[in-house]
């Protein structure tokens, strides 16, 4: 089973998590732990360009992070979702619940 890597970095006011690999029921814990550390505390973005597959486990982590951010009045963006993660987001029927930017450079100041 291929593993996942989640790297956190600071970019101005933003904390950006870059995810590489598949997000599924075996790997989502790492993403969940790192999003829970930051979501709702700081402005956060999750770069999904390196995601090779994403099941409902990944959608659930993103939704929780978005709701945490909304509650705390913080900003949240999904960055450059890969084709599979974009399809997973669209399969929810509520793609507009996932504010998305094409690249990390587009993050507002």
């Amino acid at each position: 089973m291929t593993g996942i890597s989640v790297e956190a970095m600071e970019r101005g006011a933003w904390t950006v998590l870059s995810v590489h690999g598949p997000i599924n029921s075996y790997t989502f814990n790492e993403l969940q732990e790192k999003t829970m550390l930051h979501a709702g505390r700081v402005d956060m973005a999750v770069d999904l360009s390196g995601v090779s597959s994403m099941t409902s486990a990944g959608i659930g982590v993103l939704l929780a992070a978005i709701e945490d951010a909304e509650t705390a009045g913080k900003r949240f963006f999904v960055i450059a979702p890969s084709e599979v993660s974009r399809l997973a987001i669209e399969s929810t029927g509520f793609a507009d619940r996932f504010p998305t930017l094409p690249s990390i450079k587009e993050l507002p100041v």
Partner: peptide, 8 residues
């Protein structure tokens, strides 16, 4: 239900 929970 806990935050982030959804049903498909």
């Amino acid at each position: 239900l806990p935050r982030g929970t959804f049903f498909s």
